[in-house]
């Protein structure tokens, strides 16, 4: 019996880990994966598996909280009170999803502070899509429809990811996320059917967000560094290209129903494949944005850092208060 946490920390003390022991543990892990069992926090797991999960869950969590910014940009200007309420709730959900995911990452033995440090110093990434600006109200709709749509396509399979806490967090996220996509679609529909100026605003937003949202699925499988191993570990269930194709096939009829066009002259139905063919993605843009040269990289990360730094005195105050209270013999909270 140990007094370490059930859902926390590397179970690395297990076995002392050399030679035959290690091989047996690896075999047990492999068996669990191939039997489609979930790996839980205190189970033995290969270092690579742990590192991959930390990287991926952290990146996912960071994306949620950086992703609050482009939409929060419009909360104060939302053109109706109903839209304002929806948008506030959505941005709040994103903070919540960030928290679920940090919570899942913490079961792997890293602290949220460490992860935030890595985000703030650029050592961990967030989804590049959030380095694009929200220039008009219609962008809020385009993000809901396309960006959240792409995210959902990516995330639904993660609900069956081999790592238990991540899969459970994703179940929660996906359940809540479905409203996000719908509100975006509905918002665009209202614009598309609205005045000519509103319609133009909607088309302009879709023109700007379409290609970046296709990039969200990551580079083609052939060039993707982590894909194959992640698939073997059942962290990932489908290839980037497969998911991207699924997304395109879903979007084309939805765009038609909206009365908006997708900005790709090569987009056409391929009878033989039973899917839509689409044009070449400009991967050089993707690489540039990834490197930090997108329109908003600097702005997003500075705002994040500033919020964290400006909040330091508040976090310290609450911690100091808690210490004083813990030291005091009788405290209010204890009696409640």
């Amino acid at each position: 019996m140990t007094t370490v946490l059930p859902e926390r920390g590397p179970g690395g003390d297990v076995g002392g880990g050399v030679g035959a022991d290690e091989a047996a543990l690896q075999a047990a892990f492999d068996a669990a994966i191939s039997a489609d069992e979930r790996i839980e926090p205190r189970d033995w797991m290969p270092d690579g598996y742990r590192a991959t999960l930390i990287r991926q869950i952290a990146q996912h969590a960071h994306s949620e909280i950086i992703g609050m910014q482009p939409e929060a940009n419009w909360i104060t200007r939302a053109p109706s009170l109903r839209r304002k309420a929806i948008l506030m709730a959505k941005v709040q959900d994103e903070a919540g999803h960030g928290l679920y995911l940090y919570s899942a990452a913490e079961t792997l033995g890293v602290s949220r502070d460490e992860l935030l440090d890595k985000l703030h110093s650029g050592r961990q990434k967030y989804s590049s899509i959030f380095n694009y600006p929200t220039l008009t109200w219609a962008d809020v709709g385009a993000i809901g429809w396309l960006v959240d749509g792409a995210a959902i396509t990516n995330q639904v399979p993660l609900c069956r990811c081999s790592y238990g806490p991540y899969a459970r967090a994703m179940v929660r996220v996906c359940k809540e996320e479905s409203f996000h996509q719908r509100q975006g679609y509905e918002l665009l529909l209202a614009l598309s059917r609205g005045t000519p100026a509103q319609h133009a605003m909607a088309q302009d937003a879709v023109d700007r967000w379409w290609w970046p949202s296709l990039m969200m699925f990551g580079p083609p499988d052939a060039e993707s560094a982590h894909s194959a191993q992640s698939m073997a570990w059942k962290i990932k269930r489908h290839g980037n290209d497969e998911l991207r194709q699924r997304f395109v096939d879903i979007c084309v009829p939805q765009a038609e129903a909206l009365g908006l066009t997708l900005p790709d002259p090569d987009l056409r139905w391929n009878e033989e494949r039973g899917s839509y063919d689409f044009g070449e993605i400009d991967w050089s843009e993707f690489q540039q944005v990834l490197k930090g040269n997108g329109p908003c990289n600097e702005q997003r990360i500075s705002q994040r850092r500033r919020a964290h730094e400006e909040g330091a005195w508040v976090r310290e105050a609450a911690a100091a208060y808690a210490r004083k209270r813990a030291a005091a013999p009788s405290n209010e909270d204890g009696r409640r």
């Binding site: 019996m1 140990t2 370490v4 946490l5 059930p6 297990v14 076995g15 839980e40 205190r42 189970d43």
Partner: peptide
């Protein structure tokens, strides 16, 4: 929280 550990 006190927990049983996987090797047990």
């Amino acid at each position: 929280i006190t927990a049983s550990s996987p090797d047990e």
